[in-house]
Design a protein around this nucleic acid. Structure first.
Length: 478
RNA sequence: CGGGGUGUGGCCCAGUUGGUCUAAGGCGUCUGGUUUGGGACCAGAAGAUCGAGAGUUCGAAUCUCUCCACCCCGACCA
């Protein structure tokens, strides 16, 4: 493992995707594996995911969702039951054809998502209206053999949570879709990431869903990242898996289902939304190390004094924060500064004899790379404010960037190659969306709720000139 | 699947008109010493079937053929 030596990260402006890859590697978040498209997530990267997961887990439990676990293998036949669903996923399935030294008579699929794995069982579990709503979630790995993998954002295997719920009627189901969308937006807010939520177009919605609500984010190169989705499945799956219940009216009814998920793509989004040319910038909420203490000394005596001071700090601070002392020998302070800056640690305390003697602490903040000298007695209060200020500042920066990069356009000749997000009045005709994709590599991202309820600003579709239905947001995406 | 590219110690890579290549250099690693307020320095050491196979040749990292793998750009997606 390399721990010393100058590391270089490509500038964002030079080549953003390269910058992203560099940061993932240099910050020791993840690396490519022997298996195409599958990544090795290193402790520092996984910890970020675990912090996100812990918060989301807490929110789901609070909302009354229970966790379950279903097998990784799904009978291929199950998947084939829902026509749109299998069509959507067929190209990216990993199929198990042999096991136990024999060819399998019934082929198994490694789950790309678990609708087809779970709902047959739901049919058994749900008999009466009293069994509803059924609200379950699983934390799992899934496999989608994507054509073009990308670290965290689109690996062939990824970790996520998938919620699968069943309700007596459409109204309840749809209201849950909204609630989950809100929770996802809150989770992104927790990561200091602003988001927009709304409907997906017909061609962009989940395979097998009636409607998909999406949470969209904006990377620092202006591209869109789909942060999470919440699908109203209607009775599509209930029909094929016979998920019905006996109502109070004595009649049999199909359940209305939802599924919703958020993956470790969120980690990728975190990097792309906050990172700068020096590497990662982590909001304190999801920073594996919130405060790093770097001791600086010249001789054995200095080392003793400095380390004693650092330990006292550590002991006090670890009651409130994830804090660590960088005790590595033979590494210069400058090296350590860079090391932790690349990793995005929000706050660094630099402690040398100067600080020890004057009972002070040099505090460096990663969100704007500034240093300040703080007296030891004021430190505790200072840090409380600083930590929340960094969290807020990162959010504010991202928010300003987001709103500053959405432009209104009236026809597609106005599409600016640099300005990748825009709002336009659209006919919602899938054919026009196809044209847009072919010509510019852009598709619709979402229909905001407020825009869904009002007439479009322009009566004519910006692509076809036909009658426009609503104002939509469009963007290139990851 | 289309377009482009790359395979040489752990990593980056030089070498590709065949010939002291018994494979150079940098980073990292190890040992010893000196260092430590913005990516330290010196000395020494270990570490390579040159992606795989076949062929041409007195001689192949280098030429020919076949295969494989990976990366990047597109379509797909959490």
């Amino acid at each position: 493992m390399s721990i010393t030596g100058k590391k270089t990260i490509t500038k964002q402006a030079t080549d953003f995707p390269q910058w992203y890859q560099d940061v993932v590697r240099e910050a020791e978040l993840a690396e490519p594996s022997e298996v195409r498209g599958c990544g090795i997530v290193r402790p520092y990267g996984l910890k970020i995911w675990e912090l996100i997961k812990a918060e989301l887990s807490r929110r789901l439990e609070e909302d009354g969702v229970e966790n379950v676990y279903f097998p990784i293998f799904v009978p291929l036949a199950n998947l084939e039951a829902e026509k749109d669903h299998v069509q959507g996923f067929a190209p990216e399935l990993a199929v198990v054809t042999h096991a136990g030294g024999k060819e399998l008579e019934n082929k198994l699929v490694i789950r790309p998502t678990s609708e087809a794995a779970m709902y047959k069982t739901y049919a058994r579990w749900i008999q009466s209206y009293q069994d509803l709503p059924l609200r379950l979630n699983q934390w799992a790995n899934v496999v989608r053999w994507e054509k073009r993998p990308r670290a965290f954002l689109r690996w062939s295997e990824f970790l996520w949570q998938e919620g699968h719920t069943a309700f007596a009627n459409e109204e309840e189901a749809r209201s849950e879709v909204q609630k989950m969308t809100q929770i996802y937006q809150d989770i992104y807010k927790f990561m200091a990431i602003p988001s927009l939520a709304g409907q997906k177009s017909e061609s962009e919605k989940f395979a097998g869903a009636v409607a998909t609500t999406t949470v969209e984010l904006m990377s620092r190169d202006g591209k869109a990242i789909q942060g999470a989705t919440s699908h109203y499945l209607g009775t599509n799956f209930a029909k094929v898996f016979n998920v019905n219940y006996l109502g109070a009216d004595g009649q049999s009814h199909l359940v209305h289902q939802n599924s919703w998920g958020l993956s470790w793509r969120a980690v990728g989004a975190l990097i792309m939304v906050h990172g700068d040319d020096n590497g990662l910038r982590l909001p304190p909420n999801v920073a594996p190390i919130q405060i790093i203490i770097v001791p600086i000394y010249r001789d054995d005596d200095g080392q003793r004094q400095v380390l004693a001071y650092c330990q006292e700090l550590e002991q006090t601070l670890q009651k409130k924060y994830r804090v660590k002392i960088d005790r590595r020998q033979n590494l210069s302070p400058g090296f350590k500064f860079n090391h932790w800056e690349i990793r995005g640690v929000p706050v660094r305390l630099e402690i040398g004899l100067q600080e020890v003697n004057k009972k002070e602490v040099t505090v460096f903040r990663r969100d704007d790379d500034r240093k300040e000298l703080i007296s030891r007695v004021n430190l505790d209060n200072y840090l409380v404010n600083l930590i929340s200020e960094i969290q807020d500042n990162l959010y504010q920066q991202a928010q300003n960037f987001f709103t500053g990069h959405i432009k209104r356009i009236e026809n597609w000749e106005e599409i600016d190659k640099q300005q990748v997000w825009f709002e336009a009045s659209w006919s919602e005709d899938p054919e026009t969306e196809k044209q847009l994709k072919e010509k510019y590599g852009i598709v619709s991202r979402l229909l905001l709720p407020e825009n869904a309820q009002r007439a479009p600003k322009n009566k004519k579709c910006f692509i076809s000139g036909q009658e426009a239905k609503h104002d939509w947001l469009f963007a290139r995406s990851y």
